[in-house]
Design a protein around this nucleic acid. Structure first.
Lengths: 144, 144
DNA sequence: CATCGATTATTGAGAATATCAATGATTGAT
DNA sequence: ATCAATCATTGATATTCTCAATAATCGATG
């Protein structure tokens, strides 16, 4: 349990390790809904942004290549969970918006993800989780 | 900057996001050495464990499927950075051990990774990084 | 208005990673 | 001597990453 300064205590290594553990768990929790952690994230952004979020914004906030967003939105759109409409103000942009079914599926997905998270974060206090969030935020947006 | 409780402040999402940012940066830093973050980790474990680490142990500590370890060790072995020898005490196990060249490459890799990490972690104090390490450790080994 | 550079979504290709099932070699216990 | 378990390995399939190229659209400039 004691840190020994080796690779096993490297923050980068632990980040990758923790991320993998949680993502695997979340993927399992979402599998019955036909979602994975990525499509789940897209769905949630679509739910939260009104009147919609562009694919470019999705790529930026999720740290992915824009081409990956295409496939994720394709899937959600085919299942009528989101719509993809050209932005009237700038028709290069496609506005991704959640449908009613999208919002419904999100509710169920949120519950499942919350359960999955609980098993991993139960040993951390709310204050610790706040600190963790803040630090991760710093790492992601270190250059802003 | 303020947390709004949306997916962008989800700890799981931020973990994946931060892990991605750091891994991408480390991969770039290691590319000139012909290493990626995974092979780098294997090399370091091989350097740190004496008289060697088994592939099962590698799979367990790195959170990967054993079959992935095979490919990683294959690569390092072909470049004479590690050796793969049956454990005399139990010949099912293969002991992975770093060669002199392996140790040399590790030294250079450590420098590069340290530089890469610095740009991401510079806003965090040593105490904060300790806290972060501890919390990530809790998440990874929540069930032990 | 016509043109040009920049931006967006999209497609496609190739590498890397994840996940799972099956196999042969080896072990320890029966 | 046999049997179940463990290890490394191979192979198959799906997912993800990374990059380059393209068509549509925009804003600005002449």
């Amino acid at each position: 349990m004691a840190a020994n300064g080796g690779i096993a205590d490297d923050v980068g290594f632990l980040l990758s390790r923790a991320s993998g553990v949680v993502a695997r768990s979340v993927n399992k929790a979402l599998a019955p809904l036909g979602l994975r952690v990525r499509s789940y994230s897209v769905l949630l952004f679509a739910c939260e942004w009104t009147p919609g979020i562009t694919q470019r914004q999705l790529a930026s906030v999720m740290g992915l290549d824009p081409s990956q967003i295409v496939a994720l939105v394709d899937d959600l759109e085919q299942r009528d969970l989101v719509t993809r409409m050209p932005d009237p103000a700038d028709r290069r942009n496609k506005l991704i918006t959640a449908t009613d079914e999208g919002y419904q599926l999100r509710d169920e997905a949120l519950r499942r993800v919350e359960d999955a998270h609980a098993s991993h974060f139960e040993h951390l206090s709310p204050a610790q989780l706040d600190d963790l969030r803040r630090m991760l935020h710093q790492i992601v947006f270190a250059d802003e």
